[in-house]
Design a binder for these strands. Structure first.
Length: 429
RNA sequence: GGAGACGUGGCCGAGCCAGGUUGAAGGCGCUUCCCUGCUAAGGAAGUAACGUCGUAAGGCGUUCGUGGGUUCAAAUCCCACCGUCUCCGCCA
């Protein structure tokens, strides 16, 4: 949610920033107008309330003195004021609700440094690492869904039978590799991030708090009987962890990480990327998350990007880093870097991490503040998030990249400590 | 799932059953000042957030788990919801 005060004082700057995303700016004008009205009404309402309070005190005193008749006259007066107060109050509440719902649908302002452009074609490729398109052998050019089925490490057919399309099941060495990736993703950030294992299903108000509802209701799984939602990312519970709290500056930056299952209905992408692990309804992810002061935000953004990227490069996978164009940044982000890994078998780049700096946009919505040292009052924190390791697509890229000429799949060096002696997945007999 | 108790400021804890200068006693903690060779002890003052008006000082309003209701007036009465604790049941 954007700062209403900024919109009030400099609506043109806000509109200019929003326009860089290609978003409609008319709601900003609407907010400015409604805001003026709600404040005028609020002032009048508060004056009446003050009057009612004064009158009520007098009524109390008069009753004490036994002057009931005088009190009755004041009560009538106060009752009449109360009716007006109620009307004004209702109107103010309606306007405030309208303003809020307008604001909830306005995305964050992109950072000035975010590249211009409205689509993914405008994303800036910052660097490409470890990638030589001509360097892959034929045996690496087989898509993981074929390799994995042949090796018996991915059982899509049976998963579909029990849960429907776009659900998968890892088996044997495949399940073990998945477990290793999760442990690897967590362990390499253990030096600075607190490991959290939050609930996987949350209440409606929690989903609203992070902005995943009501806008993305169609993308989330809902357990109707208990009115609970399956989280689409650990970002939801991690943000809610400190919602409504005032943090000490000394606690910042607060670094958190969590491995969870993530559930997505993918309602808008039915029929797209349905092969193998490209797009699934349930997947494992290690999420990195930080709350910090505005001064710490830039550095923290780079830190999370660095950690996510090194996790990929230490696995020996080809990857690239994109600086997303304004129009391609998701709603809460002010600036986002994507990491894409190259899957030689599927012959395409797969997004495995989206590292976003959300400025105070999420904090304002979830009401997360801190007390700046040496200042009185509070300020909203900045929040940042990024996938430390999104398992399925990394798993897929490993299976394709590390496939040997004999059909076996070698395991990346850095995962060996997590694989209990398994150095390869043997070729099918 | 059943029965009961309860939810007050950074924390502890009164007030609620008899609604009225109670934004809320008292204590702890914290900040500043005084005293003191240092520390401890002691004394004084201050110590919520948010909204809005104001250059400011400050004014007004909201907030006693959340949301409704009753009333001239609600921390106090009524209803719903959320949560905590105790006992019983069930359970990995």
């Amino acid at each position: 949610m954007l700062d209403i005060k900024l919109i009030r004082t400099d609506p043109e700057a806000v509109k200019a920033a929003i326009a860089r995303r290609g978003d409609d700016t008319s709601s900003i004008d609407e907010v400015v107008e409604l805001d003026t009205r709600v404040r005028a009404i609020g002032t009048e309402r508060d004056d009446i309330r003050a009057e009612v309070k004064q009158l009520s005190k007098q009524v109390g005193l008069l009753h004490k003195e036994g002057r009931g008749d005088d009190a009755a006259a004041l009560q009538d007066q106060s009752r009449a004021l109360g009716e007006r107060e109620k009307a004004l109050s209702d109107e103010a509440d309606d306007l405030a609700a309208t303003i809020r719902s307008l604001l909830l649908n306005v995305a964050n302002m992109p950072a000035p440094e975010a590249p211009d452009g409205l689509t993914e074609d405008d994303n800036l490729e910052l660097r490409v690492e470890n990638f030589d398109p001509a360097g892959y052998a034929d045996h690496q050019r087989v898509p993981h869904w074929e390799v994995a089925e042949a090796l018996g490490i991915l059982d899509v057919d049976r998963a579909v039978r029990m849960s429907g399309s776009m659900f998968v099941m890892y088996r044997g060495a495949g399940a073990r590799l998945l477990r290793a990736l999760i442990a690897y993703g967590l362990d390499r950030n253990r030096d600075a991030f607190e490991e959290v294992r939050p609930p996987t299903v949350v209440k409606t108000e929690t989903m609203i708090g992070t902005g995943h509802l009501p806008k993305f209701a169609d993308d989330a799984y809902h357990l109707e009987r208990d009115d609970l939602w399956a989280i689409p990312t650990a970002e939801v519970p991690l943000t809610s962890m400190v919602a409504g709290e005032i943090l000490d500056q000394a606690e910042l930056p607060l670094r958190l990480m969590a491995h969870t299952s993530c559930f997505r209905r993918e309602a808008g992408s039915a029929g797209r990327d349905t092969r193998g692990l490209l797009r699934v309804h349930e997947f494992d992810k290690v999420e990195l998350y930080a709350f910090c002061t505005p001064d710490q935000a830039q550095e923290m953004h780079m830190e999370i990007l660095g950690r996510a990227e090194s996790a990929i490069s230490d696995l020996g996978l080809a990857h690239r880093v994109l600086d997303l164009a304004c129009g391609d940044i998701s709603g809460a982000g002010a600036r986002t870097f994507d990491i894409e890994v190259f899957a030689p078998g599927a012959d395409r780049w797969l997004e495995v991490s989206s590292v976003s700096w959300c400025t105070d946009y999420q904090a304002r919505r979830a009401n997360i503040r801190y007390r700046p040292e040496g200042e009185k009052g509070t300020r909203f924190v900045h929040s940042l998030n990024g996938s430390g390791l999104a398992v399925p697509r990394v798993w897929a890229a490993i299976i394709e990249t590390y496939r040997q000429a004999d059909g076996s799949v070698r395991m990346p060096e850095v995962l060996l400590p997590y694989l209990g002696g398994m150095t390869e997945i043997p070729a099918p007999a």
